[in-house]
């Protein structure tokens, strides 16, 4: 039990640190965003009119008061889910913008990540179970080969074959063809159609790491004394592979999976850009290229918090899966 309490404590402490850093870093940076915006508007050489500067400040809602007061305001705003107004999508709030993007990413990347992990673990375990057979060679060599292909090339190939040549699926976007976001069948089937190609590209590349990791871990555990003893005990191959192999080999992958899940919130910039998908990744790209500080800051916060939560969950899961950590931590 102490293990879980300690983990929760660590989680809260890191969360606070992350939130605070997110507050401090932009404030410690040199330069004034209002000044930067104005300079861009007017050109570098020209003098900036103080009144204009003031107006821009007002528009941005630039903070006033001392750092501590700002910090208090910031925490209060966070608690109420207020992240300010996006510069790019003015006058929409950051919350609105992110709220629109997040379901797309959550569904597309979330589903593919979970599927990738599942497929990768099963294939990797299978390869280890049948190690040094043809099945193993196919899985290992196949995934190594696919892993060497550049992702964008693979994605473009998919678009070329299935969207442009065969015209089975649309070549980009999240929805279209006359449907409007809402709880209706037309929209869902349309959104699904649009998600097939980006999803496929993620599913082709996603499992590779899990396959290779799982296979190598499991080949190693199956070579350990306890696996040999299990064979000597006359246990069935299945029982050995599952309880004495996969059960132990999966442990290191759990942490990796949690981090992968956590980074979902950040979206996958490459996929969403290639497929012009309206998710968090594309939003991040826009925020960065438009110097949309409130949006950027919030996206970073989201990613950090996502990774933290996922890590915490992984620690909890690890505590259940691996009795060894519970004790080592307690001592």
């Amino acid at each position: 039990m102490t293990y879980f309490v300690r983990r929760a404590g660590f989680f809260l402490a890191t969360l606070w640190a992350a939130v605070t850093l997110n507050f401090l870093i932009p404030r410690l940076q040199p330069g004034d965003p209002a000044q930067a915006i104005l300079s861009r508007l007017t050109g570098k050489s020209q003098a900036v009119d103080p009144a204009q500067l003031e107006a821009v400040r007002k528009m941005l809602g630039a903070p006033d008061g001392n750092l501590l007061a700002q910090y208090g305001d910031y925490l209060g705003a966070l608690a109420h889910g207020q992240f300010g107004i996006s510069y790019t999508y003015y006058p929409y709030t950051v919350t609105d913008v992110i709220g629109d993007a997040i379901p797309w990413t959550l569904v597309l990347v979330g589903v593919t990540q979970i599927l990738s992990f599942f497929i990768g673990t099963v294939l990797g375990a299978w390869a280890a179970y049948r190690r040094n057979t043809r099945a193993d060679s196919w899985i290992t060599l196949g995934s190594t080969f696919v892993g060497t292909l550049p992702f964008f090339w693979l994605a473009l190939l998919l678009i070329f074959v299935f969207a442009i040549t065969l015209r089975w699926f649309p070549d980009g976007g999240g929805y279209g063809g006359g449907s409007q976001p809402g709880w209706n069948w037309l929209f869902f089937s349309d959104a699904f159609q649009h998600s097939v190609l980006p999803g496929l590209s993620l599913l082709i590349t996603g499992p590779i790491g899990w396959i290779l990791g799982m296979r190598n871990n499991m080949v190693q555990t199956l070579g350990e004394d306890y696996a040999r003893l299990a064979r000597a005990k006359g246990l069935s191959r299945r029982r050995i592979a599952l309880t004495y192999g996969a059960r132990i080999a999966i442990l290191p992958n759990v942490t990796g999976f949690a981090i992968a899940l956590g980074s979902i919130l950040g979206g996958t910039v490459l996929v969403e850009t290639i497929f012009n998908y309206p998710g968090m990744g594309r939003l991040l790209l826009e925020a960065v290229s438009n110097k949309d500080f409130p949006l950027m800051q919030t996206l970073f916060l989201f990613t950090t918090v996502g990774v933290l939560i996922a890590n915490f969950l992984a620690d909890v899961a690890y505590g259940f899966l691996d009795p060894r950590v519970r004790r080592t931590e307690a001592a």
């Binding site: 350990e224 004394d225 306890y226 040999r228 003893l229 299990a230 064979r231 000597a232 005990k233 006359g234 069935s236 309880t243 004495y244 059960r247 132990i248 442990l251 899966l321 691996d322 009795p323 060894r324």
Partner: peptide, 24 residues
């Protein structure tokens, strides 16, 4: 071999530090 294993021929391995499954 399986029915013979352990029921007829069993073993204790070298120092057994690692011959028990750590997660069960």
């Amino acid at each position: 071999l399986r029915p013979l294993r352990w029921a007829d021929l069993s073993t204790v391995f070298q120092s057994s530090m690692n011959s028990l499954n750590p997660v069960i």
